[in-house]
């Protein structure tokens, strides 16, 4: 365990050093992050210049949701997407062989190799916006809700990680689809807005079948603690069960896939 933490620290340090070599890039990237946030705020401004409420969510609620979306969108590009893209490439090219030679658990190793440091700006900007929206609605930021929010965000990231690990593991069987990650991005797109905008049957599907609701809507709702967001008090329990189940299932699929790996072409 201590060794794992020290290794993660080492990988992060290498990433930070790589990043520090291209300092000017950071300002370009910061500009891009701000651009994304600006686009999302313009979308909110557009919606609420025409209506008071979006399926019960008002502008303050939506600011929190946009913040959460930015945290997730940036966070996964910081440490999930770069690692999983690398696994998929390695499986295709056969350089996965080298990874297997390292005296480390394969799933752990593939999950912590790379960190895109500058994406932290997305997480910080998103968190600031979410807290601002919460403060604007409630006049204060109640600590218990923040704790619940952090818990729900961890569950959200765990679910997303499990999805990406599964997609990466699929490459053990189907090598040829290069943009398999589009499956995730297509589904994630539905999480831009509260799931209450969809018809009831689709809300059900987006909660229980494809748990998009747990990725953005429920974390935002847990910070707000407002009944209009339609979150039942059992949701945190569901979230922890779902996250755990997703993690175990994806890890099982990954190990099954690993057994099929025969060194494509190295």
């Amino acid at each position: 365990m201590i060794r794992a933490v020290r290794l993660i620290g080492l990988f992060i340090r290498v990433s930070v050093q790589n990043f520090a070599a291209y300092r000017f890039d950071f300002f370009v990237r910061l500009f891009v992050s701000l651009g994304h946030l600006f686009g999302e705020l313009l979308a909110v401004a557009t919606v609420f210049s025409n209506t008071e409420s979006l399926a019960g969510w008002r502008v303050e609620h939506m600011l929190v949701l946009v913040g959460v979306f930015r945290i997730v969108a940036g966070g996964i590009r910081m440490f999930i997407v770069p690692n999983m893209r690398k696994v998929m490439e390695d499986i295709r090219s056969g350089s996965f062989d080298f990874l297997l030679l390292a005296p480390l658990d394969a799933q752990f190793h593939v999950s912590v190799r790379e960190f895109v440091v500058w994406r932290i700006t997305d997480v910080v900007l998103g968190a600031a916006l979410a807290l601002y929206g919460c403060h604007k609605l409630l006049g204060t930021i109640p600590l218990p809700q923040v704790v619940l929010f952090v818990f729900m965000m961890i569950a959200s990231f765990t679910i997303v990680y499990a999805v990406w690990l599964t997609l990466a593991a699929v490459c053990f069987w189907i090598v040829r689809i290069e943009n398999i990650e589009m499956i995730f991005w297509n589904i994630f797109e539905a999480g831009r807005f509260p799931i209450q905008i969809y018809p009831p049957w689709m809300q059900w599907g987006l909660t229980y079948l494809i748990p998009v609701a747990f990725i953005t809507t429920f974390p935002a709702a847990s910070l707000l603690g407002d009944p209009v967001t339609g979150m039942s008090p059992r949701v945190p329990l569901f979230a922890s069960i779902l996250a755990l189940a997703a993690l175990l299932l994806s890890s099982w699929i990954f190990r099954r896939g690993l057994r099929r790996y025969s060194g494509a072409s190295a």
Binding site: V47, N50, T51, E52, L54, A55, G56, F193, I197
Partner: peptide, 10 residues
Amino acid sequence: AMWSAAASGS
């Protein structure tokens, strides 16, 4: 879906 919800909320 979003605009349809927005229209019914206006």
